[in-house]
Design a protein around this nucleic acid. Structure first.
Lengths: 178, 178
DNA sequence: GGTGTCATGTAAACAGTTACATGATTTT
DNA sequence: AAAATCATGTAACTGTTTACATGACACC
């Protein structure tokens, strides 16, 4: 899976510039790329070459010219193909687990402080994503089914953090009992 | 967080060769690197330069010579510093959420098939990690506290997949009701 | 006779991030 | 006067993966 598919997906809702795409990707909680220029402008060149998108240059007074990218029929077909392709298992990158793996050298107070820090960090993330869910609304004309899907995507992320939180609390209990 | 810390951690249990480290990292469920040669031999050079490790060349008959790496006091101090550093929030890379985001173009049967595929994939992963937990035992002389920590690390991963599974099932229900 | 293990390392490619560069306009 | 927004793009770097290379031995 590459950022190209995500870009095709976004363009399937409406035509946008690279700059617009960048902002959407940066703000999205499930499009996990940083959304930096290098990635996006390069991806757009690739999509142009494969004729999955076309672009139109629009000159503006008092702002730089912009290139508005539009998905083609070929692009829509490629998008559909990707949506139907075999899903991959999620990948979890939890550096904290590695810290824990070698945390037996810490005393109880230090270990406890570490857990508290992690707990706080997760709580912040959970709250942030709950907020994002409320504010989220980048595409118009949603069907009820699509709205449900998007809601569940946000819920997925929120419940990932909640599950992590529950685990830390379980860990703390186990350590206290011991 | 870099692979260097993980290597220091492993070497804190016992001295090992690059080849040994590679296998350990490849098999570990929470050290998320592929554990390829390039990364490990380069990391070891870096650790040598910082004097976090030393190495001793052992010549063998009928096998290639090997370099056994040993952690230094400086290395142990660096490891402790890293273990005490502020934990980062976990990162989730779920390409499936992006597929779902544009899955409203599918009909009910296609969407259902996609969910089933994802469910199966997650079930397999969950089972695999339950298996790994049973077989896991790379370091000797564990304290009870350390054993608890390692158990909870495995549980974390398992419950991540279980939480994901519960979410898919919730999603399927919601779609059925609608 | 082919495949796998032990053991080191390099080469090439791809993915991804941060920072730089421009230049007008608008906001603080 | 400084900072942010719009809009494009490039440069340099880090991180990561796959594949190549060597050579002895063991196993099937």
């Amino acid at each position: 899976m590459s950022i190209n598919n995500a870009i095709l997906g976004i363009l399937s809702y409406r035509s946008l510039t690279g700059y617009d795409l960048k902002k959407i990707i940066q703000e999205s909680p499930f499009m996990y790329w940083s959304g930096n220029n290098n990635q996006i402008y390069k991806a757009l060149l690739g999509l142009l070459e494969e004729e999955y998108v076309t672009n139109e240059v629009v000159h503006q007074e008092s702002s730089p010219s912009k290139k508005i990218y539009t998905i083609t029929e070929r692009g829509r077909a490629a998008l559909r193909g990707w949506v139907l392709s075999s899903p991959e298992a999620p990948e979890f990158k939890k550096t904290f687990l590695m810290q824990l793996a070698w945390a037996d050298q810490l005393n109880d107070a230090e270990l406890n402080a570490l857990l508290t820090q992690y707990e706080n960090e997760i709580s912040i993330q959970a709250a942030m994503h709950r907020e994002l869910k409320n504010r989220a609304d980048f595409s118009p004309d949603r069907t009820a089914r699509e709205k449900l899907l998007w809601d569940m995507i946000y819920d997925n992320i929120i419940s990932s953090f909640e599950s992590e939180l529950a685990w830390v609390q379980r860990l703390r209990q186990e350590l206290d009992i011991k």
